[in-house]
Structures are given as structure tokens and as C-alpha cells.
Design a protein around this nucleic acid. Structure first.
Lengths: 335, 335
DNA sequence: ATGAAAGCGCTAACAG
DNA sequence: CTGTTAGCGCTTTCAT
């Protein structure tokens, strides 16, 4: 592997000049530049990043801490981050934690070890003080989920607004017995959507029924959506609408309904959330809130990049617009 | 940020000794070790990777070149690679190329730049000579897809065998008019599955009909599976079985059948491939070949790691077992 | 068992 | 415009 010294010799210049050419400083005579470039070509030289990083004290690598890259919601965000990073000549080191705190820690440790310049956190289980501490020393942004009390940059949609959008629509359709399939995880998104559900009900003078609030598994699985819906729909006064906090859950609910002989949307309105999972693969196509996952990822990188460049006046709390998409799984109340 | 020198001062030893403690050389007096560890703790020192990498001439980073991390087939492989890498204290740098050759190149360049020690290629569009060249200088393994003629380590299932497994089963069910939905991409997996289809037919003295061989889009989309199935099923002598080279395609085919009033599996047998995409979310559950994606990923890392350690006698062509899973979308011929 | 010192490949200040 | 040189933080001989 050729080094900068080899190139310098080959081109009959000093290493400093080669370095200048490498870094496009314009204080080099054009003909010298050319000679150096020929030497670089000839030796097929590529600068050693470890050396450069050591010297420059940066890595041009960002860290992504993700709970589960297998989840399409996250993988789309990842794609967005990756593309944005790439445009700015950054590489992405991905830590798939599977919710394992030890791996989250190991991941963030990479910041201390100078293996990465900054990190993007996609939903993490770390207790707040931990992150806060890191955030003081290193550029960190939270994407999609975040610690409510912490003053760390974050990018997300307005989950509360999205939930009230859904509820206003459903209530506008004439529904009064509206259930929700939420989850027992501790994400802000979940809490805010539930709050939106509750507040909307209150706001429209509709009663809140404990029996209409169902908690799915923390991973929003199809199965658990289905079983939640089963319980919901087998009550004496069964709901005429179900607001699910994920599409997979909605898919499960629709399946449960179909197995119980309840038609969607004629007898039951089902609303999803995210618009990533096959919402238009089977009929009824699902009415849902679409999140701009890819953009969420891109924006996360943009903010992180701004932080890494110590830019002032960065908006620390970015809210990206969601879209409410009405499709086939919702309809005015019929009874 | 504390450096090794700070620690040395704090512990009243030389940097060499600190380094020895860091690297667990056993030639340090236990009490000295303790003193050093206390200093490390106190200063919350973490070794600078750039410096270590430069000195050791390694990075403990591997590169993953993937066409589309959003595709669940790949994301599961990625998860496997990530976990295996993690166990061996490697980090994974993921390059999502979107099929863009320039990005593949940029990715592999990281090897030259010493940002990574080795690479795993998941389906790539590079022309063979390119990869071959890299492979001579750096540890590279191909996962799942590979260049047939190249002598570069690879991990995959036996696609040909899998296809003949499917065909033997379908033929055993009494089907004679068997179609396939393949793709116009140029993956070995596609070619081998098609070959398995053709050879099985020949082997059982069944005629090969051009009209029964349909080419879906290169990305195996649901839509294209559906439209292929439409064409297939609207022929005069329509097939009674369709072997699809992906589950999404099979899902599309089933949807097409249902829209045409053709029952699956009573009137039509549909077989999928991969077993990653919602094969058991809707009825009929899909009969399919399950690929050990996660294991494919893990094994890829194992082989790469062996290559990086210059281990001799590594099996360069690993074939992992697939599983044929019979579910609801297939049945004996009824007519 | 420990320390001194060289040097990995690069960048950047300084000098000319 | 170009060269000389001092490190960046670490590992690793070579002494002692």
C-alpha cells in the first residue's frame, strides 16, 4: 500500500505538497498538481484514514443506534440517514441493539473511542441521565422517539396532532364507540397518540371506556393486534372504530374482524399508523397516518451535521409533517 | 479527552505500561495493573481508535455493501452479520447502494483507505474483474448472490436444489401445467431457480412452454407479481401451479387469482420463496422455501473473519440448508 | 517488570 | 509556491 511519502518521491515533491493536493488547497502550481496526481494514479494511492483521522481528530463516521434494523419503519429511516450521510461524505456505522442496553452503551462508547463523530439515536432504552451526559460531550440527535424532558436535538412528527387528526376524522364520521390499540412500551410516540385519543374523546364529550383501550405487545406484532381486536370486538357493546398505533396492528385487527364476520369498513372502521407495512397490498387498503420516514432520517443527519459543525441557532426540535391518508378501511357509521 | 499519557502520569508509570494493561499483556505486576486501572477509571479514559488503528494497521470495522437495506430479506442478513460482528468486537459500516455502482465503488474504496478490514457483498452489480481485483488484496466474501465464475468465498443456499425440491413436490401433487414467475435480473439465484424449474420439467417428461415462463420486474414487486399472474392465468390453457421466486411475487399471484375468481389452492397452487414477507399473515398461508437469512449473515461474517485472520483451509463455498415449508397455498391437482 | 524511544501516515504551522 | 518538521495517540521493540 502506497503512502504519501511514496507519492512524494514519485512526484519529486515534499509530502506537504502531496497533502495540499489531496486536500485541494489552491496554493499549488497547476503543473505540480498534475505531476502529483499522476503519481497518485500510478501508485493507486489512497490516503490512510486512520492517519488522517488521528491527525484531524475526526472520523467522518456517524453512529446509528437502532433497536431493530429489521423493522421496516427503522430501515426506511436508516436509508434516509445513509443517503444524507453519503452526500456529506460520511459513512454510517450501524449498531443494531435489539433493545439490549449493553449494546447501546457499547455503541455510544464509540464516540469516546473516537470511532465516530456523532450519533443518531432511534428509540433507545437508556435512562435519561446517561444520554444527557453523552450529549454534553458529543453531537447526538434523537430520531422519531425521544426523552421528553431532555434538551437534546430531536426530529419527529407531531404524534399528538396526528392522533387528534385521526380522531377528528373518525368522530366526524359519526362514530361514538371508538377504541384504540396502543402498546405497553414507553415511547413518547405511544404516550402522545394515546393522549390525543383521550383528549379528542373528552373534547367531543364522548365517554372514555377502559374496555376500549387495549394494549398490544411492545413490538406491535400482527398477532397481538389480532388478539387485542378479538377482545375488543367480542364485548357486548363493541366499538365501531379502532384506532391502531401501527399498520401491522391494524392489519391484525382487520384479520380478527374478518374472522368474526365483522365487515371492514361497513361494520368497523380501522385506522393504522406509519404507512410502511403493506397498507395497500390487500383490501381493504388501510386508512392511516403516513410518516415521512426517509425524510426523518435525512433531516436527522442534517441536524447532526449542523451540531458536528458547531453551527449556532440550530432548531433543536424539528417536527416534520405527517399525512393523513384516507383509504378503504374507514367509513361513516352505518347503524 | 484523556490520553494514554494522562493515564501514565496519573498512575506514575510509563505509557508503555498503560498500553500493556490496556492490551492485557501479562507481564505487568498485579498492583501496577490495579493502579493503572484506577487511573483509567478516574480519567474515564478510552483509547483513541484512530491512533490504535494507525499503529496496528487494522480497524476492527467491516464493510457491508447492500443494494437495499429496506428489503427485509437483506435486513435480516444484515442483522445476522451485525450480531456476529459484534461478538467478535467488530463494527459494521453499512453501504446502501440502491444498485448504484458508484456507491459500490465508493464503498469498496474504504478498504483501500483503511477504514475497514474486509467486506461482505450482498448482491452487487460490479463487473467481475472489479471484484476479483479487490479480492486479491482484501478479504471479501459474497453473501447470497455471487459471481459464478469467480473464486471468491461465498455463502448461499443451494438455489438449484431448492427449485427442484419445489418442482418435485408440485409434480408429485399431480400438476402438469406448471408456470414460473421469475425475474429479468441477472442474479445467480434467479438463474439457478429457473434452471431447476426447467430441468425438473424435462426430467419428468413434461413439456416446457414459453408462455408459462413469466418475467417479473427486477425488484420482485407485488404489483409485477400480480400482473405476471394475470397474464399467466388468462391464457386458454392456464397453469394449475405457479412457482414464484419470491414471496411477494406469490402474494401478488394469489391476489391476481382471487380477483379472477380462481381459488388457491383448490384451483391453483402457488409457491413462494424466501419466507420473509408476511407468508403467514393472510390466508392462504404460503407454501415456500425458507432461507436461513440470519444464519447466512452470521456465517458470512465467520468466513470473512477467517479470511481476515488468514486462516488456511477455509471452505470458500458455503452452502446453508434451506427448508421447504408446506402451508396452505398448495394442493393436489383437483381436475 | 518497566521505561525510553521509534514510528504508523498524515496535516499544518512555520520558514523560506 | 514549496519544503521542513513537529506532532496526533498508540503499540512495540530494545534496553535495563
Amino acid at each position: 500500500m502506497a503512502t504519501i511519502t511514496d507519492v512524494a518521491k514519485e512526484a519529486n515533491v515534499s509530502v506537504a505538497t502531496v497533502s495540499r493536493v489531496l486536500n485541494k488547497k489552491n496554493s499549488v502550481k497547476p503543473e505540480t498538481v498534475e505531476r502529483v496526481q499522476k503519481a497518485i494514479e500510478k501508485l493507486s494511492f489512497e490516503p490512510n484514514m486512520s492517519a488522517r483521522n488521528l491527525r484531524r481528530n475526526e472520523t467522518r463516521v456517524i453512529l446509528i443506534i437502532a433497536p431493530n434494523i429489521t423493522n421496516p419503519y427503522y430501515s426506511h429511516i436508516l436509508a434516509g440517514i445513509g443517503d444524507a450521510a453519503n452526500e456529506s461524505k460520511y459513512s454510517a456505522l450501524i449498531y443494531n441493539t435489539s433493545g439490549d442496553i449493553a449494546r447501546e452503551k457499547a455503541g455510544l462508547e464509540m464516540l469516546k473511542k473516537k470511532r465516530a463523530d456523532g450519533a443518531i439515536l432511534l428509540a433507545n432504552g437508556m435512562n435519561s441521565t446517561w444520554i444527557q451526559e453523552y450529549s454534553k460531550e458529543y453531537p447526538i440527535v434523537q430520531c422519531s422517539e425521544y426523552a421528553l424532558k431532555l434538551d437534546i436535538p430531536r426530529i419527529s412528527i407531531d404524534n399528538y396532532k396526528a392522533a387528534t387528526d385521526v380522531m377528528n376524522y373518525v368522530i366526524g364520521l359519526g362514530h361514538k364507540r371508538i377504541a384504540t390499540i396502543s402498546s405497553s412500551n414507553n415511547y413518547v410516540s405511544t404516550a402522545l397518540r394515546l393522549q390525543g385519543y383521550l383528549d379528542s374523546l373528552k373534547c367531543h364529550d364522548l365517554e372514555i371506556h377502559k374496555e376500549y383501550i387495549s394494549m398490544a405487545s411492545v413490538d406491535y406484532s400482527f398477532k397481538s393486534g389480532k388478539s387485542c381486536a378479538y377482545e375488543l370486538l367480542q364485548q357486548k357493546y363493541r366499538p365501531t372504530a379502532i384506532f391502531c398505533i401501527s399498520d401491522i396492528l391494524a392489519l391484525g385487527a382487520i384479520t380478527a374482524a374478518s374472522e368474526l364476520g365483522i365487515r371492514v369498513p361497513e361494520d368497523l372502521t380501522v385506522i393504522g399508523f406509519d404507512d410502511v407495512d403493506n397498507t395497500t397490498m390487500f383490501h381493504p387498503y388501510i386508512t392511516t397516518i403516513a410518516q415521512p420516514c426517509y425524510e426523518l432520517g435525512k433531516e436527522s443527519f442534517r441536524i447532526l451535521n449542523a451540531c458536528m459543525n458547531d453551527e449556532k441557532g440550530i432548531n433543536k426540535k424539528i417536527v416534520l409533517p405527517h399525512k393523513f391518508i384516507i383509504r378503504e378501511s374507514s367509513a361513516p357509521i352505518s347503524i
